[in-house]
Amino acid sequence: MTITKGDKILIAIVLAVNLLSIPFIFAVQKEGVDVIVEADNKLIGKYSLKKNQLISTLGPLGITDIEIKDGQVRIAQSPCLHKVCIKMGWIKHSGKIAACVPNKVVIRVSGENLNGMDAVVG
């Protein structure tokens, strides 16, 4: 995607608020039941929740492990101090987010069921 100056663009930014720091990332379009992994504001990849797997990604503090199992995903291991990200537990529903704020890793479940919505409450 290229952005030229003056283009009307949509920017979606995500923040994980905890007691430590302020991260933000640029999110990407979503389709299907996948998890989108981002590290240090960059898209790392999109992975199907249907395939059990372990994804390791590098952030400023080190490696964060993301586990996909039985249609759910979680941050399984991360080199942060308080492990808030791991405590967030498994997520599986469209639009749900978990994040390791100190290591700047964000995982977001995309999905086909929330089609057409710009935001969802609840």
């Binding site: 949509l10 920017i11 979606a12 930014i13 995500v14 608020v17 987010i97 978990a98």
Partner: peptide, 9 residues
């Protein structure tokens, strides 16, 4: 988690 969507030139 807070999420901001902006439409801006």
């Amino acid at each position: 988690l807070f999420d901001i969507t902006v439409s801006h030139p």
